[in-house]
Each structure stands twice: as structure tokens, then as C-alpha cells.
Deep mutational scan, measured.
Amino acid sequence: RHRTIFTDEQLEALENLFQETKYPDVGTREQLARKVHLREEKVEVWFKNRRAKWRR
């Protein structure tokens, strides 16, 4: 597996949602994934990693 490289637009959308909710539900993740052309799984893992970074 290779590392996903997120575009600035994707990161902006992910960060904006993170400010709203640290734990978006699957529907919200799917909606964002469609909007920025990512797989929902990638969005889910990004949030998991972003929460870990936020806790540190």
C-alpha cells in the first residue's frame, strides 16, 4: 500500500469538518468523501490519525 497524498483542497475540507466534529458519522464521512473524491475509508483513517495528533 502506498501513502495517500491529500491535496490542499482535500485537507482544507477535512480540517474544516474536524473543527465541527472530531467524530463524524459514516454518512457525514461518505458525503465528504464524495465531495473531495476520496474513499470513505481514507476519510475515516484521516480522522483517526488527526484525533491522535490532536490529543498529543
Rank of each mutant, 00 (worst) to 15 (best):
R1L: 15
R1P: 09
R1V: 10
H2V: 13
H2R: 10
H2Y: 06
H2K: 05
H2M: 14
H2L: 11
H2C: 05
H2T: 15
R3H: 14
R3K: 13
R3P: 11
R3V: 06
R3N: 10
R3D: 15
R3Y: 15
T4E: 15
T4C: 06
T4W: 08
T4Y: 08
T4V: 11
T4H: 12
I5M: 14
I5R: 08
I5G: 14
I5A: 09
I5L: 10
F6Y: 14
F6L: 14
F6S: 06
F6A: 06
F6W: 10
F6N: 02
T7L: 03
T7I: 07
T7D: 08
T7R: 04
D8R: 09
D8T: 10
E9H: 14
Q10V: 06
Q10M: 05
Q10W: 01
L11T: 08
L11Y: 04
L11A: 15
L11G: 02
L11D: 07
L11C: 05
L11M: 02
E12H: 04
E12P: 08
E12I: 14
A13S: 07
A13H: 11
A13R: 05
A13G: 08
A13M: 02
A13D: 14
A13W: 06
A13I: 05
L14P: 14
L14C: 03
E15W: 03
E15R: 00
E15V: 01
E15L: 02
N16W: 07
N16D: 14
N16F: 10
N16S: 07
N16Y: 12
N16C: 11
L17M: 07
L17E: 04
L17C: 08
L17H: 04
F18E: 01
F18C: 00
Q19V: 08
Q19S: 14
E20G: 07
E20W: 05
E20L: 12
E20N: 13
T21G: 07
T21Y: 08
T21I: 11
T21C: 11
K22R: 10
K22N: 04
K22Y: 05
K22L: 03
K22G: 05
Y23E: 04
Y23R: 06
Y23L: 01
Y23M: 01
Y23G: 00
Y23C: 06
Y23N: 04
P24A: 02
P24Y: 03
P24I: 02
P24Q: 02
D25Y: 03
D25S: 10
D25K: 03
D25Q: 06
D25A: 05
V26I: 15
V26F: 11
V26W: 05
V26D: 09
V26K: 11
V26E: 10
G27K: 13
G27V: 12
G27C: 11
G27R: 11
G27E: 09
G27S: 12
G27Y: 06
T28Y: 03
T28V: 14
T28K: 11
T28H: 13
R29N: 02
R29E: 03
R29P: 04
R29L: 07
R29T: 05
E30G: 13
E30H: 10
E30S: 13
E30M: 12
E30D: 12
E30L: 11
Q31R: 09
Q31Y: 09
Q31A: 14
L32C: 03
L32W: 01
L32M: 00
L32P: 03
L32T: 04
L32E: 01
L32Q: 00
A33I: 05
A33K: 01
A33W: 00
A33P: 01
A33Q: 00
R34F: 07
R34D: 12
R34T: 04
R34L: 05
R34W: 07
R34Q: 15
K35L: 09
K35H: 04
K35T: 06
K35R: 11
K35V: 06
K35W: 02
V36Y: 15
V36Q: 15
H37V: 03
H37N: 15
L38P: 01
L38I: 07
L38K: 05
L38D: 01
R39A: 15
R39L: 13
R39D: 14
R39G: 15
R39P: 15
E40A: 09
E40S: 12
E40Q: 09
E40R: 08
E40C: 13
E40I: 10
E40G: 12
E41K: 09
E41G: 09
E41I: 01
E41C: 05
K42Y: 14
K42H: 13
K42E: 13
K42R: 15
K42D: 15
K42G: 13
K42M: 14
K42V: 14
K42P: 07
V43E: 06
V43Q: 00
V43Y: 00
V43C: 04
V43G: 00
E44S: 11
E44C: 10
E44Q: 09
V45W: 11
V45R: 10
V45C: 15
W46C: 07
W46M: 00
F47G: 01
F47S: 01
F47D: 00
F47Q: 00
K48N: 06
K48D: 02
K48L: 04
K48S: 10
K48W: 02
K48Q: 11
N49P: 01
N49V: 11
N49K: 12
R50N: 07
R50P: 00
R50T: 07
R50I: 00
R51K: 01
R51N: 00
A52Y: 07
A52V: 05
A52L: 12
A52I: 05
A52N: 11
K53T: 08
K53P: 03
K53A: 14
K53D: 13
W54L: 07
W54I: 08
W54H: 12
W54D: 14
W54K: 04
W54F: 01
W54R: 05
R55S: 12
R55H: 15
R55M: 14
